[in-house]
Design a protein around this nucleic acid. Structure first.
Length: 197
DNA sequence: CCCTGATTCGC
DNA sequence: GCGAATCAGG
């Protein structure tokens, strides 16, 4: 794979959204997180929101004197939204919109798991599930990885929402318990005729 | 151990 | 320019 214009766009977008290099790499496919990071740096958009923590470790800068700071002609971006701090209008709804700019990017992968619909699951499995969810690591979407259970718990529209996050079954997107309820053989969900209208 | 990004350097 | 290897850190 090569860095086509589109792929670079996706890269920029996702990086700007705070996606990790590995996630971006998976999304793009055909590249590793190293490739992504490398590209990010080459594009000059390394730090996204001030993170000097792991930025400077070894200062390879001989560091002498810099009389004339040859700064590049920084292109100004159209970002004139400084947020009104006063009380201009009585907005009754604070509206928690951390990430509203959901651009219509064409993300193919990332098959999110289905919501636990009203299925007929064995009592055992359900009981076990309840226990498992108590032990859930309550990961956020961004904390999910290849090896964390991606089973959603709670209502995405509220604060009460997170992902299981327990260790995945090899090759599965969920932990053992959630794999059990996610991939049910049709046999256990038949009798739908009880209310055969 | 899992993960993160940063840097180096041969290609 | 690219990205694997490596590094440094959480």
């Amino acid at each position: 794979m090569s860095w086509t214009d589109e792929r670079v766009e996706i890269l920029k977008q996702m990086w700007a959204e705070g996606k990790s290099a590995s996630v971006i790499a998976k999304e793009l496919g055909g590249v590793t997180r190293n490739a992504v990071i490398g590209k990010v740096h080459r594009l000059g958009l390394s730090n996204r929101t001030a993170a000097p923590a792991a930025a400077a470790k070894t200062t390879p800068e001989p560091e002498a004197v810099k009389p004339p700071p040859p700064r590049e002609p920084e292109a100004k971006k159209p970002e004139p939204a400084p947020q009104a701090a006063a009380a201009p209008k009585p907005v009754e709804k604070p509206a928690n919109l951390p990430i509203p700019p959901r651009k219509p990017i064409i993300t193919a992968g990332q098959p999110l798991p289905p919501q636990p619909s009203a299925n007929e699951i064995s009592a055992e499995a359900l009981a076990n599930l309840a226990e498992v969810e108590k032990r859930a690591r309550k990961l956020t979407l961004m904390q999910l990885t290849e090896r964390t259970c991606k089973w959603p718990i709670g209502d995405p529209a509220t604060e009460e929402f997170w992902f299981c996050g327990l260790p995945c079954q090899p090759g599965k997107p969920y932990c053992e318990a959630h794999t059990a309820v996610a991939f049910q053989p049709m046999s256990s969900r038949r009798d739908r005729r009880s209310a055969s209208r």
